[in-house]
Simulated assay, not measured.
Amino acid sequence: MKKFLTLIFSVTALTFCGCAGKSTQAQASSSEPSGDVSAYLQGAYVSVADSEAKLTAAGFEVLSKFKSVKEGKTIVFTCPTLKKEAAKPNRANIAVMKLFVDDQEKTISFSNPVYFGKAYMQDDYNHATFSAVKAKLEGAFPGLKNSEDKMEFDDLAGFHFTLGMPYYEDTKVLGEGSNEELLAKLKNYKKGKGLAYELKISDDTTLVGYSVGRGTQRFVKKIGRANAGLLPWPIVVSGGKATMLQAEYYIAMNYPLLGMMQFATIASVPGDVIKDLKKPFK
């Protein structure tokens, strides 16, 4: 009886991502991790086209294929579970996950739904929900391994890089006006060349992926192309404001092994990101 109930739970959990009926060997868990959690799930090379096909077959929706670094692309994707969680107040950033396909190094790297789920959902985090999304990725891409980039699970919700640095909730306002006006500005600036994706989460909230300037974007080569999947930059349009996660937070969250000396080599980047992303709203 106990085994039967366990099986029922596993099947139910795996349907959270809107993918019922698709088999996988990976299983979701309701028990939160103890100790470190990897920021990425890494594996052997799969082409962009084949990666997109695998994601689609597993029930995910591909939103964008973005050139984040030379010979490397970020595939941005979502699913019903992520969109449902993102519809909760101040949780829009969790609406998408990223897959970085590195044509140069012949590897792939997924953002770990458990890692970013805990960071972005904070007290609203439900482990069974995000473990189920992770299990679907592991089922679609067998052989994924945990990255060396990791952080203590219990530290993720309250993370900031160091004293005086911003937290998740310390967002930067890029522009104000009606949601419609703000989205129109993003679409019209330079004929929309910087707009990587647009995902409506609710009647009042839209998540947009936007490109920072070419010069700014080069910082990923300085601190590690393997994590270039943090691009394009997410912008939340909600309640008459366009906001972004502060660069000091977002970069450090995506590069958990980043040291103070390494961060100093890109000291101008946070300011450059703000300048780049404010331009469409002038």
Rank of each mutant, 00 (worst) to 15 (best):
P270W: 01
S29Y: 09
H127N: 12
M121H: 08
H127E: 08
L245C: 03
L63D: 05
S268P: 04
G164L: 08
K191L: 10
I108L: 09
Q122L: 12
A20S: 14
N146V: 03
L156D: 01
G192T: 12
G35Q: 13
G143N: 08
A53Q: 12
K3G: 07
S111D: 05
G192I: 13
I235N: 01
T129Y: 06
A58S: 12
S30E: 12
Y249M: 01
S268N: 14
Q104T: 12
A26M: 08
V220C: 01
E169W: 07
V37H: 03
N112W: 00
A132S: 15
V101P: 00
R218F: 09
S268M: 12
Y45E: 13
A95H: 09
K193W: 09
D102T: 08
V96A: 01
D102N: 15
V220R: 00
K73Y: 13
E169H: 10
E198T: 14
Q262N: 07
Y167M: 11
K2P: 04
G177I: 06
F161S: 00
E138M: 13
A228W: 00
S178W: 07
V37C: 06
K106W: 06
M253V: 00
F66I: 03
A119F: 02
F153K: 03
K67N: 11
L183F: 07
V237Y: 02
S238Q: 12
N126K: 15
F263T: 00
G43E: 05
I201K: 02
R91A: 15
E61G: 05
G21W: 08
E105L: 14
A196N: 06
K222R: 14
A44N: 15
F4H: 12
R225Q: 12
Y40M: 03
S211M: 09
K191A: 15
I108P: 00
R218V: 10
L257I: 05
L63F: 13
Y250E: 00
M151D: 00
K134S: 11
M253D: 00
L199M: 11
L137D: 02
A157F: 06
T129L: 13
G59C: 07
L277K: 05
K73R: 09
I8W: 11
D170T: 07
A58F: 03
S10Y: 13
S34F: 13
K187W: 05
A135N: 05
Y45D: 11
F219L: 07
F219A: 03
T78N: 07
N93L: 11
L199V: 11
V212T: 11
Q27L: 14
P270A: 04
